[in-house]
Write a protein that binds this DNA or RNA. Sequence first.
DNA 1: AGCCAGGGTCTGC
DNA 2: GCAGACCATGGC
Length: 289
Amino acid sequence: MISLRIEHIDNNVILYSPPDFNLEHTFMCGQCFRWDKSDDGTFCGIAHGKVLKISSSDDKIIFHNCSLEDYYNIWGNYFDMNRDYSEIKTNLSSDPVMKKATDTGYGIRILKQDLWETTISFIISASNNIPRIKKIIASLCELYGDKLDENTYSFPTYQQLQGITVEDLSPIRAGFRAKYIVDAVNKANSREVNFNLLAQLDTDSARKELLKISGIGDKVADCILLFALGRTEVFPVDVWINNTMCKLYPDRCLSLSDVRAVGPEIFGRHCGIAQQYLFYYARENGGNI
DNA sequence: AGCCAGGGTCTGC
DNA sequence: GCAGACCATGGC
């Protein structure tokens, strides 16, 4: 358990010198799509139906306009505050490349995001780029979510999306992914895939359930397991991770299935977290590892 | 103009 | 099991 000094001042929750927590690293490592940086450096985002403004200065992280109740009930869990990342980084740093990667993205935290939102978000991520993924998700929220604030909408539940068609989704410009969204909505509402029970399943069973949905393959399923259910033992392999791993371990990574198998072998029980350090590091360096 | 983006599906061997 | 075409869309 992490000991952390927390205060509530002027309706702001302040974390003093939180170890291993950097907003830039956490929001820019490709795990989330609903956080935006303002000109003043603060981040504004929506999660679990709540809006949050969060910033950092010196050695503080400041949750603006936030009650202690919301911190303890929502945000502390969302930012995975009970996990000791120092220990994980130390273990990973025996690998020289991972040492560099963890030094670069030292403040990454694996967010515990909403399961349904993460499912749809990573269906949309297929063969897509991050700015456009964000744009499509934002317009889906504006079209079907609840208005929380000016220009701020919740992510629509599958109940709210019940009965939608591909044509209904045409304004969000999701392209070939629209039919996959519709399939996910249908299977969630019919309980063919029970999103209320998924978190209670072991990782392999949960993956098998997710794979029932058209548009979810191994990579998307792994992202959902990691970014919503906190299954840090999975190792999502996208283009960036594949290229990086093939450069780092050419003899062991001959095919995509090799890379998927090698991740856990090399990085161990929390290879999903290692994957995030690698992803951030690779992109920071434009793929030149 | 052509390539690529946090892939998946479908087809053909 | 595995390669290749194809899938919409937008930015460069």
